[in-house]
Each structure stands twice: as structure tokens, then as C-alpha cells.
Design a protein around this nucleic acid. Structure first.
Lengths: 235, 235
DNA sequence: GCAAAAAGTCGACCGCAGTCGACTTTTGGT
DNA sequence: ACCAAAAGTCGACTGCGGTCGACTTTTTGC
């Protein structure tokens, strides 16, 4: 009862992803047609749209696996006692290297994660959550070691650091940074700047903390929902 | 000599942009076909590709004008003596409001500016330059008023602040921030954080300043090239 | 003033993402 | 065991972005 269908679906889904991965890495995203993926997966074109709503969604599903793997690798070689700045540089540079192995791949991923289309929002948030979680852990560690100002909000700091990573990516894709070494140097400089602050004597405060708290709750609520389920289908 | 063609080209180009604007705002970017634009502009489809290399390029050309206008508006109501934080909030929120008047419009623009396709890189940098210039001016003012640490590099600080703006946009498009008021509160909090710094006692320095300087020179060189020309054609 | 070259215009055509409705397979109630 | 409904599969079809090469208009050199 409920067996044959379930397993078939899982298999087909996997076949689609595998075919897609193989073709994407061979010919790139844009040059790979849905029809080719379907052919290689041994199914009809229309069937794919029973599993994914858009071509990008296949791409994101593929990324999800890859990124999990990359984070796993990273966790191993991370030294939780190193200064926060060093840990951050290592984390971001690993991600950067991973994501820009192929220029087009990285751009697509960055676009879809930073400014997702309505269709891909859920997937995109899923991946956000992974980043935020990783960053959050580094920050907790740093906080315990007294490297952070106690007044600093965790999520806000996470966002701040993530913003800097986004900027680096953007500079890379705009051609302002061309060598990996430049990326690392700029990243380090910016992170250092973020930690030590731009201002001499900062006037005013951070504004109403109520709104921030509300937003934080929303983000946390959503990202904890995701960790529970790992279901495959949409709708 | 060389008259008829020149003027024709200018007129046609303008007609394309006007038709595009009208259709984009009526039906959105994706729902507007190149053919429809051509029809409305009274030319053939193929002709458009003599003026723009891709559909997005038309969009960007349209944005350029709009953004110039928006910056102009802004310059008028900016109070150059207000605290840096306030000026930044006003600048970014104006841009944010402008850019998200239409959700799709804003996303497309953000994508193309932050992670441009090779084809649109030039246009994208053009617009970057405008942002950077605006920000740079605010920063110079703040520096003169002693609001900034003297050790802080101008371009690096500009980038830092821009990163925060990008993050806000990203949070908006990911659905983490839904009310404009939330955006403003988060923006203010993050900017405050950037100015006052995350770290308690920051270990290490910003790394090798040589690379940063090299990159700075590149960015400045490129953005000054653009201000000179305001030519219409590519290739 | 004229012919060759250069620049510009055009729409038929190509390949592809995504839709649709006809068709097949599985499920669950009896 | 049977059969209606639900779930899944399929490829022909639609609409669009972008190309191409044939055609027209302007410029240039004489």
C-alpha cells in the first residue's frame, strides 16, 4: 500500500537530478535543455514538471546536495578556537571557491538565493537557513569567548556578515575583483572593518528593537520549520 | 554628412525605450515580448537587436534614466549636515522605495546590478558607479565632520554600506522583511551596527592594504571612464 | 551624379521553456 | 477480483527570445 508509487517517485526524481547534474556540468545550465534532461533520465519532458516547477528548481535541488556536502567538508577542517575573523574568512572563502568553480553556476545560484523568483523562494530560504545556521554557530562560539560586544544581536550580526559575503560575490561578478587573492584580501579587510566599526563616535542608537525582534522571530520560525521536513514534492 | 543616420538612430532608440517602458509598466517585464515592443515602436523585431543585445539591456537602459531622476530628486531633499546614519537611511530608503515600487522590476534590477550577466556588465557597472559616487559624497562629508575613524578607507566603507543595502533588498525578496517599516528598522539597526562595530576587542588587522589599494585604483579608473562618455551604441 | 561599400532594417526561422489534455498506472473501497 | 477515482506520464503544441541572410537606405570616393 502506497509503496510502488512512492519508490518510483523517489527514483524518478533522483534520475532527473542525476541527469541534470551530468548535463549541467558538461554543457552548462543555459545550454542544457529540459528535453535533453528528460531523454537522459528516460522519461518524457512533461513529467519533469511534475517534479519541478521550473528549470531553476532542478538546479537548486542539485545545489542543495552540493552545498550540504561543502558545509560538511568545511565543518571538519574548521578550528572552533581560532579567532572569529579567521573562521569567517575560511568559511566564506570555501563557499566562494565552491560556488565560483564554474562562473555561470555561481551566478545563477547567487541570483536565486539573494533575489529569488517567487517560484523558488522556498528552496532559496532553505539554503539561506543553512548559511545562517553555519554563521550563527561561529558567532555563538565567538560570543562565548568574549569576542563580541554583548549588546550585539545575534541574527543582526549574522546578517551583517552575510551582507559582506554577498558584496564580495557581487564584486566578483561585476569584475571589480578578479583574482581569488583579491577577494580574500577584500573580504578580510571588510570583516575587520565590520568587527571594529566605521564610526568614531556614533550618534543615535540602533532604533526600535521591537521590529527587529519581530522579524527575528519570523526568520527563526521559518528556518526551524524547514529542518524538520525533508520532503521532496511541492504543492 | 553623417546626419540622417545619426538622428534616425537616436529617434529609433528612444522609440524602443519608450515603447518598452510603456509595455513593461503595463504588463511587466516577462509578459512583454520583444515583438510587442517592436510593433509599438513601429519597427521590425530584428532591428531591436541592432540597438540592444538582450531584452534585459533595454530594461537597464530604461532604469538608467529612472535612477538618474531618482538620484536627482534625492539630492534636493538631502540635508548634508544631518548625522551620517540619518543621511544613509534616507538615501537607501529612497532607493529601496523607488526600486520596489514594482516587485518584479526591482528584482530584475537588483539581479542585474549585483550579479550581472557578462552581456550586461558594462551597463551594470555604470549604475554601480552612480551608487558609489552618491555614497562616496556622503562619506566625505561625514569624514570632514569627524564622524568617521580616520583609518577607515573610503572605498571600503562605501562597499560596506552598500553591502548592507544589498542585504536589505535580499531580505525583502526572500520574504524575511515584508513591511517597509521593517526594512527601515532593520536598515537602521544594521547601519548603526556597522558604524559602531561588532567586535569587543578585535584581534588582527585588516590584512594587506596593498591589494585593497590596487582594487580601489581599478574601480576608480573604470568609473571615471564612464562619466566621460555617454554614448548610445555598443560594440 | 553614380556606383560600390557600409550601415541599417526586416520578418521567417530556430531552439527551447513551459502547458495541456489525452492516455496509462496505481490505489483503495467494496 | 473489480472498477472508479486519483495520481502520474507523455509528447504535440504554443509563445517567445534571439539569429540569419536577403533586402533597402545612406554614405563615401571619384
Amino acid at each position: 500500500m502506497g509503496g510502488i508509487r512512492e519508490t518510483r517517485k523517489r527514483e524518478t526524481r533522483q534520475a532527473i537530478i542525476e541527469a541534470a547534474v551530468s548535463l549541467f556540468s558538461e554543457k552548462g545550465f543555459e545550454k542544457t535543455s529540459i528535453e535533453a534532461i528528460a531523454r537522459m533520465a528516460g522519461i518524457g519532458k512533461g513529467t519533469i514538471y511534475g517534479y519541478f516547477r521550473a528549470k531553476e528548481e532542478i538546479f537548486l535541488a542539485f545545489c542543495e546536495d552540493e552545498i550540504d556536502y561543502a558545509f560538511g567538508m568545511l565543518a571538519e577542517k574548521n578550528d572552533p578556537q581560532a579567532p572569529l575573523l579567521e573562521q569567517l574568512v575560511i568559511l566564506f572563502m570555501s563557499q566562494f571557491r565552491f560556488v565560483t568553480r564554474n562562473r555561470e553556476f555561481g551566478r545563477l545560484l547567487a541570483r536565486e538565493i539573494a533575489f529569488p523568483r517567487e517560484v523558488n523562494r522556498e528552496k532559496s530560504r532553505d539554503m539561506d537557513a543553512r548559511y545562517l545556521q553555519g554563521l550563527g554557530m561561529l558567532l555563538s562560539g565567538a560570543r562565548q569567548r568574549g569576542e563580541l560586544k554583548p549588546s550585539v544581536d545575534n541574527l543582526l550580526a549574522t546578517g551583517h556578515l552575510y551582507a559582506i559575503y554577498l558584496l564580495m560575490l557581487s564584486c566578483w561578478y561585476s569584475g571589480y575583483l578578479v583574482e581569488e587573492q583579491e577577494v580574500e584580501a577584500s573580504l578580510r579587510a571588510l570583516l575587520h572593518q565590520a568587527l571594529s566599526g566605521l564610526g568614531e563616535r556614533v550618534s543615535g542608537d540602533g532604533g526600535d528593537p521591537g521590529v527587529i525582534e519581530k522579524v527575528s522571530r519570523r526568520i527563526i520560525a521559518e528556518s526551524s520549520t524547514e529542518s524538520g521536513k525533508r520532503d521532496e514534492t511541492h504543492e
